[in-house]
Simulated assay, not measured.
Amino acid sequence: MKKKFSFSKFTVRLVLIVNTVFVVLPLLWSVLTSLKTSTEFYDNPWKMPSGFHIQNYINAIGKANMGDYFINSIFVTILGLILSLTFSIASAYVLSRYEFRFRNFIKKVYLIGLFLPPIFGLVPLFMLLKDIGLYDSLIGLSMVYAFTAIPYTTFILSSYFTSIPKEYEEAAIIDGCSYFGLLLKIMVPIARPAILTVSIFNIMAFWNEYMYSLTYISSEAKRTLPIGLINLMEVQRYSTDWGALFAGLVIVMLPTIIVYAILQKHITSGLTVGGLKG
């Protein structure tokens, strides 16, 4: 039996194919350009490289300090993620499972934090970091990342915690489990899909963040990859080493592409976390 032609399905698939081409081609072109010499780039930017010029990556990592910036980005991303999850999991659990005074007010404060543009907190956070001695510090930058991610993370996790039946908690309490053990041994394992989802989004946000890093880091040795990439662009603009410039661009893009490729199922399914569960 022949399937009937569906114009709507054909349109959707056509749009997806076109969108894929517009996304994949620039990425592929950047990777190929990072393997060219400057002579090849000026000769024909669209031509395939004659060989794999790994020296471009060596120049980007060594001469442009992209290796140090890469390590800095890993540090602030991991520390920011740990801090955000630590505070958000505890806050989300309390707000979703217990009744207490000012509970609704606190929830509204978190919701307000979701809609405030990050630029609003730029100056107050700058003054706070200066006062507590964490300006130009990777730890201070990690704290900024973590605390700005708490409203979103808490909102998603609280919606998921609300959907978990209370019978799990009651059974654990009867068995003598403490409130702290209840959170770590019962609630966190059950909420693992939501925790993984917000972790993925936060990792990608921390890794690509530019504004806070530019404002709160002044030392060249403490820069993160987005700031290092801008510096590399300025340097290579005058030295005309386009291969090293695109190599630095690939170094910045590659981790997020790998994370998305490996965990894409969790990312797509996580878009409905809190909507279907809440």
Rank of each mutant, 00 (worst) to 15 (best):
M1V: 12
M1D: 10
K3A: 12
K3N: 12
K9P: 01
T11D: 02
V15W: 01
N19L: 13
T20Q: 01
F22Y: 00
F22R: 02
V23F: 11
L25E: 10
P26H: 10
S30W: 04
S34N: 07
T39M: 07
T39Y: 12
E40F: 12
F41G: 04
N44L: 07
K47M: 14
K47G: 13
M48F: 13
M48K: 02
M48V: 14
P49N: 07
S50G: 15
F52Y: 09
H53R: 11
Q55H: 14
A60E: 06
G62Y: 05
G62E: 11
G62T: 09
G67C: 05
G67A: 11
F70T: 15
I71M: 10
I74K: 00
I74T: 08
I74L: 14
F75P: 09
V76W: 06
I78F: 12
L85F: 00
F87W: 01
F87P: 01
F87M: 13
S91K: 02
N104Q: 09
K108M: 15
L114S: 00
L116W: 08
L116P: 06
P118K: 04
P118L: 06
P118D: 03
F120E: 00
F120K: 03
G121T: 08
M127I: 15
M127H: 13
L128P: 03
L128V: 15
L129V: 08
I132G: 00
G133L: 11
G133T: 10
Y135I: 15
L141A: 14
L141N: 05
M143N: 00
F147I: 14
I150Y: 03
Y152S: 03
T153N: 06
S158Q: 09
S159E: 15
F161V: 01
I164T: 14
E170V: 02
E170Q: 03
A172H: 06
I174C: 09
I174A: 07
G176P: 00
C177L: 10
S178Q: 09
Y179E: 08
L182A: 00
K185H: 12
M187S: 05
M187N: 05
P189I: 08
A191F: 08
R192T: 13
I195V: 07
I195H: 04
T197D: 02
T197K: 02
V198Q: 05
V198C: 10
S199H: 00
S199D: 10
F201C: 00
N202K: 04
M204I: 14
A205I: 11
E209S: 09
M211R: 06
M211F: 09
Y212G: 04
Y212P: 04
Y212T: 06
Y216R: 02
Y216T: 08
E220F: 13
K222P: 09
K222G: 00
G228D: 06
L229V: 01
I230N: 04
N231P: 01
N231M: 13
Q236K: 07
Y238D: 15
Y238N: 14
L245R: 04
A247T: 06
A247P: 07
V250I: 13
V250G: 03
I251P: 10
L254T: 12
P255G: 10
T256Q: 15
I258Y: 09
I258V: 15
V259A: 14
A261S: 14
Q264D: 06
K265P: 04
L271F: 10
V273M: 02
G275M: 12
K277H: 04
G278L: 03
